[in-house]
Design a protein around this nucleic acid. Structure first.
Lengths: 233, 233
DNA sequence: CGAGATCTTGAGTTATCTCAAATAGGGTGG
DNA sequence: CCACCCTATTTGAGATAACTCAAGATCTCG
């Protein structure tokens, strides 16, 4: 019995759509790996030797300028795909934000398997197109929204994406009212293109105005979602 | 004889890799269309009924906030693909920046054809992965670079991407020393997340310092590429 | 319980934006 | 061919959001 049989993202990840035989074959070239928070899977500029599927946990994709400024260019959730198949090098560092489990493949193995299994490539294409749309929408936030709008948008996005997906991967689940942020203030700044102080001030302002509550450093409760939505534009 | 036979991007667009029979079939479901500068092909939020391949010219993808702020989230060059196959709606407005020719498909026709031709899907996947990488690198620019760095980076990118691709679509061609910008100052601002005044001031500063020359409103000559490169970070 | 890290708060600086006006190009009709 | 008009661009001056630097508060973990 392959580990895929018990995989919780089996029905939503790119493996969905493969038949039992194909799944069995895929499981022979992949292996599961656990990551601790802060642990990196691949590094910016390194030869792209690995690709992976996220089983559980959250990871960040980050890029930096030469002088050390960092920007988080993507956040990866369960069932998402990591890496750059059919390419030479990786453009980003991938680091776990929480405890995470991933299903890792050697890129060359994955490339070959994908070439022989169009349904897998199709799933990957759909996922990549969706991710491209999401990334472009984020560009709008980075360049045209102010700090308040950025933080409000970020909190709303978190409340939606942290909601556990239902098993069928069907309609979007209900957004969460309360949740624990998987990011430090610094990391929120890196996502939003803000400094840590600005993030802190905005969160505190939302807290004081009663739109959200902050029971402790990592926890957030959305008290007045319509107000938050209005602030996010 | 199908119009594909004379298509100049035939060897670089997603159609490359298809055999003669497949090309013939594809040409029966697509049609060529010319666009004038400023003319839009699809609109943000509209049902996604079209996809297309760029044959010549440049187009922009733009998204706006509710209150009218605009951001150009992508620029599309010859051989690039436009649109969102396998999806419901389009997230962006696509507008020609120059005279442009595109090869247009009804999305449903294209989806069906792609499903039956894995090699086409594979090409599209590679192209989408590359575009995602490019878009993420642009996020870094939007959130972490200052106005001078943004403008310098923009001019360098233009000098590279406006260089005519060689026929084989092989190694990157030599970047151009002089070229005409396909963007107005306003549009450059929309690409970089700056106001028109800031763009103008930065361009004039580069001009005064002798790093570039501006023979007329649309033309740019790169005089000191190493200096420009240093300013771009 | 203490030490280090993370987060919050404050005060002053600055890059970019906003608003306003001047200038220059390009195109058109006389 | 020239004068004129419309629009794009440049320039200036002042306002401001976010940054930087610095200090204090709070949490976390050994």
């Amino acid at each position: 019995m392959s580990s895929c049989d018990t995989c919780v993202v089996r029905n939503t990840a790119i493996c969905s759509g493969l038949d039992a035989g194909e799944i069995a074959l895929l499981s022979t070239i992949g292996r599961q790996r656990k990551l601790a928070p802060g642990e990196s899977l691949v590094w910016e500029g390194e030869d792209s030797v690995l690709v992976a599927n996220v089983i559980s946990g959250l990871l960040k994709l980050s890029a930096g300028t030469e002088d050390g400024r960092e920007q988080i260019v993507g956040v990866v959730y369960p069932a998402d795909f990591i890496g750059r198949p059919f390419g030479r090098s990786t453009e980003y560092t991938v680091t776990a934000l929480t405890d995470a489990e991933v299903c890792v493949f050697a890129r060359s193995d994955f490339d070959r398997f994908a070439g022989e299994h169009p349904r897998l490539e199709h799933k990957l294409l759909e996922r990549t197109l969706t991710e491209l749309d999401r990334t472009r929408r984020w560009m709008l936030l980075l360049s045209r929204k102010n700090a308040q709008e950025k933080v409000a948008t970020f909190l709303l996005e978190m409340s939606e994406r942290l909601a556990p997906a239902d098993c069928e991967g069907g309609a979007n689940p209900q957004p969460l009212k309360g949740f624990d942020l998987p990011f430090s203030r610094q990391q929120i700044g890196d996502v939003l293109g803000l400094t840590i102080e600005t993030v802190s001030r905005q969160m505190m302002a939302l807290n004081r105005s009663g739109v959200i509550a902050l029971p402790n450093r990592r926890a957030v409760e959305i008290i007045d979602r319509p107000a938050l939505l209005a602030m996010a534009r």
